[in-house]
């Protein structure tokens, strides 16, 4: 058992110590399309240094979590090659902004399963045996087997890293919190296409005494994990 992590608005977890056997590290959408050069986010014209900022601290947290034997869960957003799971409005919006999902880009077809841009970046590559969840939307619980995998493994606590803070990470954390998982998000292991939205997303977690869980950072967590 490990001690609580210093976090806002309460030290995490609420129920005392961290039990590594009941805690999973979530790595949300560390895909080339969201943080790689020539990927989807780059093609939309956003600054990928913002979505890449969390790579190094996340590497350190991932190494510590693996050492402790925590469950490691990766997620990937992407669609079937025939785009049969792509809602028409989602496709249209991506086309309007110049990065149509399913169209050919420098990293293969944008956000299509099996393509180069859809894959997880090498810096945070999964190891054999680690769980990868493929999802068609922003939330990692909707239309996936994430919940059953966590329940079978006896996981009750989740630590979030990933991109982007306000979209896929937040949606998944909201879903997890509703399902009774005790959640922590690491401010420096996440990132968004807009800095203000990143900061607002973190602040929202802390409203009403921690409406979606708590916020900490890699340094505070590593102090506990590596002790």
């Amino acid at each position: 058992m490990l001690q609580q992590v210093q976090a806002n608005p309460y030290n995490w977890p609420f129920d005392g110590e961290i039990d590594p056997s009941k805690t999973a590290l979530m790595l949300i959408d560390w895909q080339a399309d969201f943080c790689g050069p020539n990927g989807y986010v780059d093609a939309m014209g956003y600054d990928i240094s913002l979505t890449r900022a969390g790579i190094e601290p996340t590497k350190r947290v991932l190494a510590a979590a693996r050492k402790l034997g925590m469950k490691i869960i990766f997620t990937r957003e992407g669609h079937r090659p025939d785009l049969s799971d792509l809602p028409a409005n989602k496709r249209w919006r991506s086309k309007q902004i110049g990065a149509e999902i399913g169209s050919e880009g420098p990293l293969g077809r944008i956000l299509v399963r099996g393509e180069k841009g859809w894959d997880i970046i090498p810096e945070l590559a999964p190891m054999p045996g680690e769980v990868i969840i493929d999802k068609p939307g922003k939330g990692s619980f909707y239309a996936t087997d994430l919940d059953i995998i966590l329940r079978v493994a006896g996981i009750t606590h989740l630590i979030f890293t990933g991109i982007t803070t306000d979209v896929c990470v937040h949606t998944t954390m909201r879903e997890a919190n509703d399902r009774g998982y005790e959640c922590l998000i690491l401010s420096d292991c996440t990132g968004a296409t807009d800095k203000g939205n990143h900061e607002a997303a973190l602040k929202m977690v802390t409203m009403q005494g921690g409406v979606f869980g708590a916020v900490s950072d890699s340094e505070s967590l590593l102090k506990v994990l590596e002790n």
């Binding site: 939309m44 919006r93 991506s94 309007q96 902004i97 296409t193 939205n197 607002a200």
Partner: peptide, 20 residues
């Protein structure tokens, strides 16, 4: 809940061509 977050609450919807 927090009137100061209204601008970002709206912006989070509008990013990437209307992500939500």
């Amino acid at each position: 809940l927090n009137p100061q977050s209204k601008k970002n609450t709206i912006s989070q919807i509008e990013m990437s061509g209307g992500i939500f």
